[in-house]
Nucleic acid binder design. Structure first.
Ligand SMILES: [Mn+2]
Ligand SMILES: [Mn+2]
Ligand SMILES: [Mn+2]
Ligand SMILES: [Mn+2]
Lengths: 218, 218
DNA sequence: TGTGTTTTTTAGGCTTGTCTAAAACACATG
DNA sequence: CATGTGTTTTAGACAAGCCTAAAAAACACA
C-alpha cells in the first residue's frame, strides 16, 4: 500500500515519463512537486525498494510495470473525481484540480467502481484527458498542440494541458473551450505567438506558452 | 488548519463528550482510537495549544467552543458523504463508514456546500444521525434506546448507534431497519436481553448490547 | 489517613517526510 | 583529457505521530 506522498511522487514520475523513453531526473521531480532534490532522492529509494520504480544512482528513475499500474489507478481516480465535480456538483473546470488532488488518494475500490458507474463510464475528463479503466487501459484522442500547427490548419479543441486555474480561466475568457473550432491564422516568428480564429467568430492573439497547452484533434 | 490525525482526535473527544458534562479521559480516547494513552497525552497538548480543547493535567479534556465548531464540520462531512454513498452510489449502510472516515478529511468548503445541495440538504444520515448545517446547528429526532423502553412500549426505529458492519448486517438480517416498527414484548432480567416484535410480523430475541444500539422515536 | 491500584504523564525512541549544507558525481567545454 | 559547472547524493537535523517503559498523580478503600 502506497502512502499519499508515495502516490504523488509516483504519479509525477509517470507524467514526466510520458512521451519520452528517457529516465526522469531528480530535479524535474523536485520542481514539479515543489520539494528539494534531497527529498526526492530519499523518496526514490523508498519507491525503488517497493518495486514501483527502477533507479540507478545519478542516472534518473523509471516507472516499473507495477508502478505504472499503480500510477494509472491514481490518475483514473483523479480524473473520475474531476468529472464528478463538473458534471454532478457544477464545478467549473478551473476549480476541480486541487480537490481532485485530495480525492485521488481515497482508498476504496468499491467507491471508484461505483463512481465510474454513476458517471456513466466517462472516457475523458473535463480537460480532455483520457480516463484509464480498471486495468489501466485508455485511449487519448489523436491530438496536436496549436504550437505545432501550420498556418491555416484548423480543428476542434480536444484537450488543455495545464491544470492551473489561471490558465483555464484565460481559456474560458477567449472561448477556446473543449469543442471550440480553432484556425491558426498567423504565427509571429519573433516570439512564437499565434493569431487564431475561434469558432469562426473572433480573432485572438495567444502566447507561445498558451499555444503549447491547447490541443486540437489531429 | 487541523491535520487528519488532529481532526480524528477532536471528533472522538467531541463524541465522548456527548451526553455528559464530565471531561473526557485519556484512556477513553485511547480505547476509541486504538492508540496508547501516551500518544493521546501528546496529541491533547497539541490540540490544547491550538485552542480547540481545554485541558488540565490529570483532569481530562473538554472541547472548546471553537473546537466544537470544527468537530461538527468534520461530522457534517462524514454524514453527508455517507448519504452520498448510500443514495447515489448504492452502498449498503454497513459499507459506508470506513470510506466516510477518509472522505471526511477532504478540505474544500465549496465541495461540501455543493454536495449538500446535490443531496437535497438531507437532515439525517443513513444511520439516523442528524447532519449539522454549515453553522453547526442540528436537531436529533427525540429518541430512546430499546434497552430503556418498558415492556409493551412500541415505536419506529429512528437511529442505530453502532457503525460496525457486523452490527449493521445483523440489524439488516432481523429487519430492524430505520422506519421499522418495534414493540418490546419481554425483557429477561437475567442478562437484560429483549424479546421484540418487528413490523408486527416476527418476534426476535436481541441481546442487551444490541438493544442499547437500536433507538426508536420517543 | 495510609496504602495499594489505576490512570496519566514523562522520557526516550522509531518512522515518514521534509529541509539545508556539504560531498560526490556527470558532463560540457576548451 | 583536464577542469569547471550543474546535478545528485549523503549527512545531519527537525516536526508529526506513534510506541514502550518508568515515574508521578489520582483514586479507592481498609
Ligand atoms: Mn487535474
Ligand atoms: Mn484533468
Ligand atoms: Mn459513520
Ligand atoms: Mn452514520
Amino acid at each position: 500500500m502506497l502512502s499519499f506522498a508515495e502516490e504523488n511522487y509516483l504519479k509525477t514520475i509517470y507524467h514526466l515519463s510520458e512521451g519520452t523513453s528517457n529516465p526522469v531526473s531528480t530535479n524535474a521531480i523536485a520542481d514539479t512537486l515543489n520539494t528539494r532534490a534531497a527529498s526526492v532522492t530519499d523518496m526514490i529509494k523508498k519507491l525503488s525498494n517497493k518495486g514501483v520504480v527502477t533507479y540507478q544512482k545519478y542516472r534518473g528513475v523509471r516507472v516499473s510495470e507495477e508502478g505504472q499500474k499503480a500510477a494509472l489507478q491514481v490518475i483514473r481516480k483523479h480524473r473520475l473525481w474531476e468529472v464528478f465535480l463538473v458534471q454532478k456538483l457544477k464545478f467549473n473546470w478551473d476549480e476541480v484540480h486541487d480537490v481532485a488532488e485530495q480525492l485521488e488518494h481515497i482508498k476504496s475500490p468499491l467507491l471508484i467502481r461505483r463512481l465510474d458507474e454513476f458517471l456513466g463510464y466517462p472516457k475523458y475528463d473535463p480537460h480532455g484527458d483520457p480516463i484509464p479503466d480498471e486495468s489501466g487501459e485508455f485511449k487519448a484522442k489523436p491530438q496536436v498542440a496549436l504550437s505545432d500547427c501550420k498556418i491555416g490548419h484548423d480543428g476542434v479543441v480536444v484537450a488543455v494541458k495545464d491544470a492551473s486555474a489561471a490558465f483555464l480561466q484565460y481559456v474560458d475568457k477567449i472561448g477556446a473551450y473543449i469543442g471550440a473550432k480553432i484556425r491558426v491564422i498567423d504565427r509571429l516568428e519573433f516570439d512564437g505567438s499565434l493569431e487564431i480564429l475561434i469558432d469562426n467568430k473572433k480573432t485572438v492573439f495567444i502566447s507561445k506558452e498558451v499555444s503549447e497547452n491547447i490541443w486540437i484533434e489531429e
